[in-house]
């Protein structure tokens, strides 16, 4: 994976994690409007980052596979491999 791909992936991991943590928080604080606003803005950011990545480097989500120009879901590396992480 290129340095650029790894850096973008790291940002995606950070935003995805932050969103997930906010989701768990909201599960037990469902009336917290401020928290939901934050989740919404994280969601927008995450969506844009993932779209950029999938556009440039291939699918991250199974649902994005049909949007690619060719079938590249199998391209290495996979997440558990050293090469897929930074």
């Amino acid at each position: 994976m290129s340095e650029e791909a790894l850096n973008l992936l790291k940002k995606i991991q950070q935003t995805t994690f932050a969103s997930y943590d906010m989701l768990l928080y909201l599960d037990t604080h469902e009336d917290d409007k401020k928290a939901f606003k934050l989740l919404q803005s994280l969601g927008t950011k995450k969506k844009a980052l993932i779209a950029e990545y999938e556009d440039k480097f291939g699918p991250l989500m199974q649902s994005a596979v049909p949007e690619q120009e060719s079938f590249n879901w199998l391209d290495n590396p996979w997440p558990w491999e050293k090469e897929g992480n930074k």
Binding site: K10, T16, L60, M61, Q62, P79, W80, N85, K86
Partner: peptide, 14 residues
């Protein structure tokens, strides 16, 4: 469930 092709937290062991 849908698989995401990245880890929740990166793992890179030397």
């Amino acid at each position: 469930f849908e698989y995401k092709k990245f880890l929740e937290y990166p793992v890179k062991i030397k």
